[in-house]
Design a protein around this nucleic acid. Structure first.
Lengths: 210, 210
DNA sequence: ACCAATGCTGAACACTGTGTCTATTAACGG
DNA sequence: CCGTTAATAGACACAGTGTTCAGCATTGGT
């Protein structure tokens, strides 16, 4: 269901690619509309007949990416009610590898961090929904508020994802990276640091401590 | 060792406060130098006699904050070689509460995310140093690369910190928040979600899997 | 209390980039 | 093939930048 007219598709694609490459080179603030149209080999007026401004273009590009990601994640979600498969994380990493430049742009917070916030918040909502339905399904009571848990997990995920995308040459496959991430996240930092058994000092968990 | 001249100190303080409040209101990109000087009740020329541009002001403000934080963290660091006290995290949360607006600005990625990157990277380096010296001290071999571990931990921390600062009214004290965070981080998501025992399916950890 | 040094100021300046518009040409899809 | 839609160059007013300068006011040191 992309726009029917071939010229429109072509132009928007060129604008997207030009934006992404220029932002990675110079940073969002140092890219002008003229820079974009010049690299895309289009007239400046053409830009404004598609988007009201630079921000709108970025917003559109990021939204498109999210829709694509959501579509790929959808079939995996019911499965994660059952167990901790790590499949959504794996799919996220694969998707990021395929759209490396755009993910780097987002994860680096280009564009006043709006793109990153939008992306983070969408991921967090999705993760919270999975956590909630999983808690219901297994009839288990979370020890920590699932909203907070979702934020923490997304924060962890995106930090590692950024490292994985930025490190050159690629340090490991998507499978290896998410396997590692899954282990760290599920087992915790005490285990990851190399210690055995349970962490010391069971600190109070919630707002009900003395 | 702040600048000696009283007028200079006063002016820079006014510019800092004006910047922070305006950015939180409108977003970094929608704040002009004139907006800043107007709110600070200063002439526009005065701005340029202190900073070359808006970015420089933000950079300076963030750097100052980091130096302040580092000073408060320094005395706690040798202690964390010994155990997982959670004291640095607690101090970070307290510091953030005291400088709430500026932390929100940074954590939201205002200013093309440069401030957030700068802050994240500095925290990550500090954490990695602690992890490394702790591994040495306890003669324990990490199961995951400490650089990655540091990034993940900082990502988790900052995600929860942002939630804690944004949630109004304050959901819990700094002690409670970091206690919760410490439990989550050390024990892992499997525990936090309410499950007992070890997580299922020990996935491969590093780049050496089949 | 003084005063040389320094900071603050408003006004004017050239300049870059924005967003809009219009008339013209080119490409599209049915 | 043709009516419709997209791309384009050029011109426009405008907002914000960063610089300069001559004046006035506040400062810290003696």
């Amino acid at each position: 269901m992309p726009t029917t007219d071939r010229r429109t598709r072509r132009t928007r694609g060129l604008l997207r690619d030009a934006l992404v490459s220029l932002v990675l080179e110079r940073g969002y603030a140092n890219v002008t509309v003229e820079d974009i149209t010049e690299r895309a080999d289009l007239g400046r007026a053409t830009f404004y007949s598609h988007y009201p401004d630079k921000d709108a273009l970025l917003r559109h590009v990021v939204t498109e990416l999210q829709e694509d990601l959501d579509e790929r994640l959808r079939p995996l979600v019911p499965a994660s009610e059952v167990g901790f498969t790590g499949k959504p994380a794996l799919e996220l990493f694969r998707h990021a590898r395929e759209n490396r430049d755009l993910y780097l742009l987002i994860l680096r917070g280009e564009g006043d961090g709006r793109a990153l916030r939008q992306f983070t918040d969408a991921r967090t909502d999705a993760v919270r929904a999975v956590f909630t339905s999983r808690a219901d399904h297994h009839e288990v009571t979370p020890r920590i508020d699932l909203g907070v848990l979702a934020r923490a997990w997304v924060g962890e995920q995106l930090a590692v994802l950024r490292w994985w995308l930025e490190t050159d040459p690629a340090p490991m496959s998507a499978e290896e990276a998410t396997g590692m991430l899954q282990n760290l996240s599920l087992r915790g930092r005490y285990w990851a640091n190399g210690f055995e058994g349970d962490p010391p000092d069971p600190a109070p968990t919630g707002p009900e401590s003395p």
